[in-house]
Simulated assay, not measured.
Amino acid sequence: MSEFERSRTMPALPELVFDQAADVNLMDRWLPRDLHVRAEEPPAVTVHEDRTDEDARGLFAAHPDQLRLEWGTRDDGRYAGWLQVAGIGSGASEVTVHLSFFDGSHAPPDDVVQAALDDSLERLAEQVRMRVESAG
């Protein structure tokens, strides 16, 4: 099993950050650039990966009361992840993303996963920044 976790602070209220991250129709704006999520009958989603040109059946759940997202593969249980938003005071938030690959043979190289997590959190922060600026 391989596990990865990254965190980042964002200058926005946790509810705003969570709403941005939880919108399935906007996930392409912050997920790794080669992943695309298509909502189905909740909690089902399909994730398309450009690199392999394959679709994977997944599950996605948003828990607004906990400011938490959870996801994973639907059929084989080989992958899961979560995103947690926490308020840290002064209108700022910390976002933590955690990924678990239960079958090491399906896990990408560590440096690729860490770079993708950093890039995704950067892209989410940019989406949140644009949303805050447009609201202000």
Rank of each mutant, 00 (worst) to 15 (best):
G81Q: 03
V112A: 11
L121S: 05
D110I: 02
H36Q: 12
A56G: 04
Q66F: 00
Q20E: 13
T73D: 10
W82K: 03
F60C: 05
W82F: 01
A21W: 02
A61E: 05
L121W: 04
E49H: 06
S93T: 03
L99T: 00
Q84H: 06
A86L: 12
T9P: 05
E5Q: 15
S90R: 13
A86C: 12
L13K: 13
Q127H: 04
V24S: 07
L121Y: 04
E15Y: 08
F60P: 00
M1P: 15
A107P: 02
L59I: 13
W30D: 02
D23E: 13
E41H: 08
G89Y: 04
P108Y: 09
S105P: 07
M1D: 12
L124A: 09
M1K: 15
A62Q: 03
D53V: 13
F101N: 10
E70P: 07
A92W: 15
D65F: 07
V113P: 03
D65Y: 06
R129M: 02
G77F: 00
P11V: 09
I88F: 11
V132M: 05
G91Q: 12
R38N: 12
Q114H: 14
A21Y: 03
E40C: 11
R6Q: 15
A86F: 00
M10C: 12
L35W: 14
M1I: 15
P64L: 04
A61K: 02
V132C: 08
M27W: 04
V95R: 00
E133T: 09
V85A: 09
D110V: 08
P108M: 14
W71A: 01
G81W: 03
G87M: 01
V45E: 09
P64H: 01
Q66T: 02
P14M: 10
D23V: 00
S7R: 13
L69N: 01
L69H: 06
T9V: 12
A56R: 06
G77Y: 02
M27T: 11
E40M: 07
V45S: 07
V45T: 10
A80L: 06
R8H: 13
A125V: 03
R57S: 10
P11W: 11
W71G: 04
T96A: 02
D119G: 11
E5Y: 08
D50W: 11
Q20Y: 03
R78V: 08
H63P: 05
E3M: 12
G104F: 06
F18D: 00
H106E: 06
A107C: 15
F60W: 09
H48M: 08
V97Q: 06
D76W: 07
A62W: 01
V24A: 11
L69M: 00
V37N: 00
D28W: 08
V47D: 00
W30M: 05
M1N: 15
R123D: 03
L26E: 10
Q66K: 13
D118N: 11
D50M: 03
M130K: 08
R6D: 09
D76M: 05
A80N: 06
R57Q: 13
D55E: 14
T46K: 06
Q127S: 10
Q127V: 11
E49N: 07
P108I: 15
A125N: 04
D119K: 10
G72P: 09
L16S: 10
S93H: 03
P32R: 06
P42H: 09
L83C: 05
S134G: 05
